[in-house]
C-alpha cells in the first residue's frame, strides 16, 4: 500500500498532513476517502488547530495493539485540562474515532465525578439557570439519594 498523504484543514485554516492509512482510523475520514478519493483538502470546520494537532499526534502513534488501551489512557491523562479534553472529545466525535472519544469522555467523567455543583458548572462553563428555590425543590425530591 502506497503511503498516500491526506491534508486536513482545521477551523482556522491551518493545514495538517497525515498518512492515509493512519487517518482512516477515523471513520469519518475513511468514508470520505471511499467516496471521492479525498484528492483535495479535507476541511474540518469545527476542529481548531491545537486540537487537530493532538488528534494527529494520537493517530500517528506507533503502538502495539495490546498496549493501545494504556496508551490512549495515558495520552488523555497527560492533557488533564477539562476544556482541552472536551475539545478533543468533540473532535473525536466528529471524526468518529471511538477509542479516543471514549477515553476523553471517561476522563472528563472521572474528573467531574467528585466535583461539587459549582465546580461542575465552572469546569464545563455552564451557567446556573436555576433559582435557589428550584434547586432546593430538586434536592428535596431526591433527598433519599444524598
Amino acid at each position: 500500500m502506497s503511503k498516500k498523504t491526506l491534508t486536513l484543514m482545521s477551523k482556522d485554516k491551518q493545514l495538517f498532513n497525515i498518512e492515509e492509512h493512519l487517518a482512516v482510523q477515523s471513520v469519518t475520514i475513511r468514508n470520505m476517502v471511499k467516496e471521492d478519493g479525498a484528492s483535495s483538502v479535507i476541511p474540518l470546520p469545527r476542529v481548531d488547530s491545537e486540537t487537530l494537532a493532538l488528534v494527529i499526534e494520537y493517530l500517528n502513534r506507533q503502538q502495539a495493539p495490546e498496549e493501545d488501551e494504556d496508551y490512549v489512557k495515558k495520552f488523555v491523562d497527560e492533557r488533564g485540562e477539562i476544556p482541552t479534553l472536551l475539545e478533543l472529545a468533540q473532535a473525536a466525535l466528529d471524526l468518529d474515532i471511538k477509542k479516543l472519544m471514549d477515553a476523553a469522555c471517561m476522563k472528563v467523567a472521572d474528573l467531574i465525578k467528585d466535583f461539587t455543583l459549582e465546580e461542575v458548572r465552572e469546569a464545563l462553563r455552564i451557567e446556573n439557570d436555576r433559582t435557589p428555590e428550584e434547586e432546593k425543590a430538586i434536592r428535596d425530591e431526591f433527598q433519599w439519594a444524598f
Partner: peptide, 9 residues
Amino acid sequence: ITRCKLVCK
C-alpha cells in the same frame, strides 16, 4: 441523581 440534575435545566 445528586449532581447532574442540579447543574442546569
